[in-house]
Amino acid sequence: MRSKALVALAALLALVAGSVAPAAAQSWKTVSKSRQLRGQEFLDVEVNYAVGRFELRKGPDQQLYRVVSKYDEDAFELSSSYLESDGRGSLRIDIDGHDDFDFSDSKDYDFEAGHLRLELTGATPTVLSMKFAAVEARLDLGGLRLRELTLETGASDTHVRFSEPNQDVAEHCTFKAGAAVLKVEELGNSGCRKINVSGGVGKLALDFSGEWDHDATGDINVGLGTIEITVPAELGVRIDRSTFLMSFDAPGFEKQNGGVWLSRNWDTARWHLTLSVSGALGGITVARL
């Protein structure tokens, strides 16, 4: 974990410094792994990725998963394993920095050149858990059969999208962002019944559009930063606000007692979203599409 933190910090500094110097010599290794769907009834996926670009999307249904990764084998180590028992598969992918690799010359190091691409089947119920350190992540979770989702990011730029409705019901979806930008689009397609979003420092953009066929609740918390929430007009929305030094702008909502805001269609809407929003410093804006 310590090495992961050091790698993340070095990568963050190098990325932000905007170095234009040529990259130091790197020993690239490409690893590709795929497995056919063969009666698996459940898939548990865990991804830990230290530095680089990450992409996740739905693959062919008959293919349980496909991983393609390119990384510098002098600096990082890939560990991937798939275990299966009684039709329940468990896929674990781990790319972490070597303890003994010296990142002191990191300004010349091309951290962004490494990447990891993951494709998952849309035919098997899936529990997905991901942890990123300094990663630029693009995830399209549309069309998967998600039962549960957990995403933790460090100093990352993460963009999550549900381009198609979830084929299953996800009881919990958890997003935790450190010093990061986290953008989640079309959460209405996620099928999540309970959504937890927390951020340390940075920007959270949450778009709740999509095909709603259920009620949902959400806890959104940010320490220092901004929260941009977008909700579809037909959805009944209630916001319980608990903030310290945080501005709150929610046009089209009616203020109730006790820090509660209600959309005007709360009583008539078919589906409802109840959000509890809290934060220390920054601003919250809520917009209706």
Partner: peptide, 14 residues
């Protein structure tokens, strides 16, 4: 046999 899993590793010397 049916191939269940395929893994490929490509690097400078492997």
């Amino acid at each position: 046999d049916e191939i269940l899993q395929t893994a490929v590793v490509l690097s400078g010397d492997e």
